[in-house]
């Protein structure tokens, strides 16, 4: 069962997460009495990488317009910095005493801290990306809400001109997102809802056209046509709301995986 909810996050964190777990187990079981190696060089490399990461992260926070990202990201950066300091301290302690138990503990804590901090960073970014897709979905929902006040062909043409690029964007982004997800059920739900939206959109436009034509002829059936149009717009809205709901899911239901 996957632990990370996107393939990108999984590919970055899974290998290092496994290594950390393995080493923690080794340390717990070992107590081998062997001296620890000099880790100064690799720890220094990690510290340098963290300095760069923090620099990039801070500049991203400053330039971002996403208030939630601005709010969540600093804590993740602090976590990574603190973890790097633990690794540095451990390395210094091991230089003095290669058998130091507190140094080993600091190493494990530092490694875990880096893992947790980088994981939080990636999640902050991922959530921000999801919010962008949701904004696009909400734009489509806003257009759908307008469908029932369209009464002329000119307005319908404008409606289609406005809706089409948004729908294309939503379709592309949701499709891309569904391919990124590790959770099979979420992936399938997104694909199914997106397919429905794509199938329903030309039918909705057609129903709007029929309503306008009937309205022009002053026929009584216009009520029925309006009902049909509203039903289709409602169906599309429901599918989009479901897409928004699933986009925000990051937890796993083990039963679904079983």
């Amino acid at each position: 069962m996957p632990v990370f909810h996107t393939k990108t996050i999984e590919s970055i964190l899974e290998p290092v997460a496994q290594q950390v777990s393995r080493l923690v187990i080794l340390h717990e079981e070992a107590e081998d009495g062997n001296a620890m190696p000099d880790l100064e060089k690799p720890v220094l490399a990690v510290s340098r990488a963290v300095v760069n990461l923090v620099k990039v992260g801070r500049s991203t926070i400053e330039s971002s317009e996403d208030s939630l990202l601005k709010q969540d990201m600093p804590a993740a950066l602090l976590r990574v910095e603190a973890a790097a300091r633990l690794l540095e301290e451990a390395s210094s302690m091991l230089k003095v005493d290669p058998y130091s138990q507190p140094a080993r503990k600091k190493l494990i804590e530092g490694a875990r801290g880096i893992l947790q901090g980088t994981s939080s960073l990636l999640l902050c970014f991922d959530e921000s990306e999801v919010r962008k897709i949701i904004r696009e979905c909400k734009t489509v929902l806003d257009y759908l809400a307008v469908a029932e006040v369209i009464e002329t062909m000119e307005d319908l043409i404008q409606f289609v001109k406005d809706l089409s690029p948004c729908l294309t964007k939503v379709s592309r982004e949701v499709d891309h997102r569904s391919q990124e997800l590790t959770h099979q059920v979420h992936r399938e739900t997104l694909t199914r809802c997106l397919d429905s939206v794509k199938t329903l959109s030309p039918i909705l436009i057609c129903s709007m056209k029929i309503f306008i034509q009937i309205l022009r002829q002053h026929c009584r059936e216009s009520d029925e046509a309006a009902e049909n149009r509203n039903y289709l717009a409602g169906r599309m809205s429901d599918e989009l709301h479901e897409i928004i709901r699933v986009l925000q899911l990051t937890t796993y239901d083990e039963d679904e995986w079983d």
Binding site: V16, L23, N34, V46, A49, V50, V80, T118
Partner: peptide
């Protein structure tokens, strides 16, 4: 354990670089 820690720190270094790349890519 000796090899393990060196390998892990190398992996951690790589992970941090990958995270940095992700941030830079999405930011651009």
């Amino acid at each position: 354990l000796r090899v393990g820690w060196e390998q892990l720190l190398t992996s951690i270094n790589r992970t941090i670089n990958e995270v940095e790349n992700q941030i830079l890519t999405r930011d651009s």
